[in-house]
């Protein structure tokens, strides 16, 4: 392992990571940002209406503004996925999938979350061939189509609304329990003539040849399986943290990194912020605040060490 010893490595360049970076750079810390992308989950958000200072702005546009601010501070960014974090001889080594090991005296983990998968037969095979995790992107490709949506939360109902806006012919909404979406959203679809609800039901298999042809749906109450002919399925069953590589840190049952009110993890010198942590409010504005906190605490750690 060679190369520069940084004061700090920030893993992730979503709202938390980029905010942390701006704070650290402005405090003069030699900072490396290691991230598989710029913007993270915020890139998937169509419209943000609760980030102060903007009446409304798209997620990607907001992230471009963040990136401009990062560039102004002359940040060093390496686009790569972190695959390991470990303490070695008094410093931390963060390994990138393609760029190898990077070293620093402290670390801020802000690696965010990713969409959960169904984990059923056919899901991987038909990814991009009818299986989609982005209704914002792909709903326009399902005009006049019969489509399934898995997930009864806000994202699932939003996917149904995206499909309705794009004139899908019929939509099956499959939820493993009662709908959990906010009432204001759920009311828009519950009695819609194009929407059929399958509550307390699970998608058990995705069928097709070149493209999707059907999904199997099993009732959790009766055990009965129904095969629904569809051209696509949008998977909106929530998110899981990008924390698989963080073996060195304490995590909760959801795999989120456990932090205290000063963004400290179980490993001294490693801080964490944003959606990868056990902070329950998964909001852009909260992630930014946590990123700023983590940066200030990391600076304090480094200057008092």
């Amino acid at each position: 392992m060679t190369g520069e010893l940084y004061d700090l490595i920030i893993i992730g360049a979503g709202p938390a990571g980029m905010t942390a970076a701006v704070y650290c750079l402005r405090k003069g810390l030699r900072t490396l940002i290691l991230s598989k992308d710029i913007g993270g989950q915020a890139n998937w958000t169509t419209l943000v209406e609760n980030y102060m200072g903007f009446l409304e702005i798209s997620g990607p546009e907001l992230m471009q503004r963040f990136e401009e601010q990062l560039k102004k501070e002359k940040a060093t960014v390496v686009i790569d996925e972190a695959v390991n974090l470990e303490a070695q001889a008094g410093v931390f080594a963060v390994t990138g999938k393609t760029t190898g090991a990077h070293r620093a005296r402290a670390v801020i983990v802000a690696s965010g979350k990713r969409p959960k998968k169904l984990g059923v037969k056919g899901e991987e095979e038909f990814k991009g061939k009818g299986v989609s995790y982005c209704s914002t992107c792909d709903a326009p490709l399902f005009r006049e189509a019969v489509v399934a949506v898995a997930g009864g939360g806000n994202s699932g109902v939003q996917a149904v609304l995206d499909l309705l806006a794009n004139e899908a012919r019929q939509i099956y909404l499959i939820s493993d329990e009662e709908l959990t979406a906010d009432q204001v959203l759920a009311e828009k679809i519950i009695d819609h003539p194009k929407v059929r609800l399958y509550q307390h039901s699970l998608v058990t298999e995705i069928h097709g040849e070149q493209m999707i042809a059907a999904v199997s749906v099993q009732s959790r109450k009766t055990g009965l399986v129904e095969r629904l002919p569809v051209e696509g399925i949008f998977v909106e069953i929530g998110l899981e943290p990008n924390s698989d590589f963080l073996q060195a840190l304490r995590k909760n049952d959801l795999g989120e990194v456990v932090i205290d009110c000063e963004c400290r993890t179980s490993l001294p010198g490693v801080f964490a912020a944003g959606d990868v942590t056990n902070i329950p409010e998964k909001q852009i504005i909260v992630a930014c605040g946590e990123g700023a906190k983590a940066a200030i605490k990391a600076w304090t750690y480094l200057t008092q060490k």
Partner: peptide, 27 residues
């Protein structure tokens, strides 16, 4: 598609790299 965030980023990347391209909005 016009609502696809990753499409926007991809086009920004191509422009930044000076790669000329033809866009088809399939939506």
């Amino acid at each position: 598609t016009s609502t696809c965030p990753w499409c926007t980023r991809l086009k920004d990347f191509l422009r930044a790299e000076g790669i000329s391209f033809h866009e088809v909005d399939v939506g």
